[in-house]
């Protein structure tokens, strides 16, 4: 079985609220590219959207939080009941620190300033580190160099502290999406292997969804 013969998920998709066809369009494009599901960030899905979805394609709801570190805990608690996945957009050191210390969080996306202390907390609270491939596609020059440096350093911590990692295109339109193999090829630019990239789009998202199921108690314990 090939590495890319799996069910892939993109967990951070930001459809534009003004465009009505945005959600079905994104879903169709994602399905065509070989994804089996995606998570929409801070978006209300209407009934017409659900009718127009392609078959065998799952939609999840995610809450994307970007606020000050003092409000982070209350924001996460507020959103955790309604949404499947909680995502914090990485920022400065204090915000990242507050995020990795909160057990309810699922994904910390592209943390800019991340060190071994953060990594240890993230490991204890099983928080996934998100790699934003979209920033590499959209940016050129200095901005892209900065992002690549950040991702290369974050990957070192992911390997050293055995953190789960996730790859996302952070797409807003259908033109921002990329197929899983292309995502892996771009991820290889900052040193990620094909296997790691494939796991980051299939195994890790499924693990996150598993922790959300009702039978799940905590890591290693499950009600049968």
């Amino acid at each position: 079985m090939s590495l890319f013969d799996r069910n892939f998920y993109d967990f951070i998709v930001n459809p534009s609220p003004e465009d009505k066809d945005s959600i079905p369009g994104l879903a169709q494009q994602a399905k065509k590219y070989g994804y089996s599901g995606m998570a929409l960030v801070n978006t209300q899905v209407t009934e017409t959207d659900t009718e127009n979805l392609p078959p065998d394609f799952s939609i999840y709801h995610a809450a994307g939080i970007s606020c000050k570190q003092t409000k982070l805990r209350s924001e996460i608690q507020k959103h955790s009941k309604k949404n499947d996945i909680i995502i914090v957009m990485g920022g400065d050191e204090l915000l990242n620190r507050a995020a990795v210390e909160t057990p309810g969080l699922d994904i910390l996306l592209q943390p800019g300033e991340f060190n071994h202390v953060h990594a240890r907390f993230a490991h204890d609270n099983s928080i996934t580190i998100g790699f934003d491939i979209g920033s590499l596609i959209r940016n050129r020059g200095d901005a892209r160099i900065r992002e690549l440096t950040t991702m290369r350093r974050n990957l070192i911590y992911v390997r050293k502290y055995d953190l789960p990692a996730i790859l996302t295109a952070n797409a807003a339109t259908i033109y921002d999406l990329r197929a899983p193999r292309e995502m892996a090829a771009i991820a290889s630019l900052f040193g990620m292997t094909q296997k790691e990239a494939s796991d980051a789009m299939s195994t890790t998202p499924l693990e996150i969804l598993k922790t959300k199921s009702q039978d799940y108690v905590q890591n290693g314990i499950e009600v049968l």
Binding site: L136, I137, R138, Y175, R178, A185
Partner: peptide, 14 residues
């Protein structure tokens, strides 16, 4: 994969 637009028109390649 890193080609994202051509003369202002957004494109996606696979």
């Amino acid at each position: 994969a890193c080609i994202n637009n051509s003369g202002g028109i957004p494109i996606s390649t696979r």
